[in-house]
């Protein structure tokens, strides 16, 4: 048995502690907003927050997440998250949308640490998040807009 704190709630799961957190979230807890894209921390579609930091849930074992505070796209709250999601919607960033949970999770961490990021800051913070539809122009724009909203 493994106990995980996810989105503020303790969940007791009967899983192999070696199972990647991603599959525990998706297959056991039905938190499917966190996506499977590559399974090797190459694309960022599975990005969640662990103790406030962006983390690739496909490459973290459930056993290593015990005792930590895990937040997924379904549970993300607060001013920064709202500003980011609103900017994403205002600008219509999404195309297929499959990577966007991960992009948004990374953007929230960036803005929480750096309220007025430059393009270079954005490029560096989101370098691990692939968007195959190529929505990067709008991702940058949305992060700047959210930053202005929060200022």
């Amino acid at each position: 048995m493994v106990t995980l704190n996810i989105n503020g709630t303790e969940h007791v799961l009967d899983v192999d502690p070696r199972m990647p957190l991603l599959w525990a979230l998706r297959d056991r807890l039905d938190l499917v907003g966190t996506k499977f894209g590559c399974g090797r921390a190459q694309c960022g579609a599975c990005t969640v927050h662990i103790d406030g930091e962006a983390a690739r849930s496909c490459s973290i074992r459930v056993g290593d997440a015990v005792g930590k505070s895990i937040t997924t796209i379904e549970g993300v709250t607060g001013k920064v998250a709202q500003a980011v999601q609103k900017a994403w919607q205002d600008i219509d960033v999404v195309q297929c949308g499959y990577c966007q949970s991960g992009q948004i999770m990374s953007a929230i961490v960036l803005l929480a640490a750096k309220p007025a990021p430059t393009d270079a800051d954005i490029d560096s913070a989101l370098a691990g998040n692939v968007c195959r539809c190529g929505t990067y122009v709008r991702i940058r724009k949305a992060i700047h807009q959210a930053a202005r909203e929060l200022a």
Binding site: L31, G33, Q85, Q89, V94, G97, Q100
Partner: peptide, 11 residues
């Protein structure tokens, strides 16, 4: 606005 923006930004 796109009809799928909201659902795709909230998971």
């Amino acid at each position: 606005p796109r009809l799928d923006s909201k659902s795709k930004t909230t998971g």
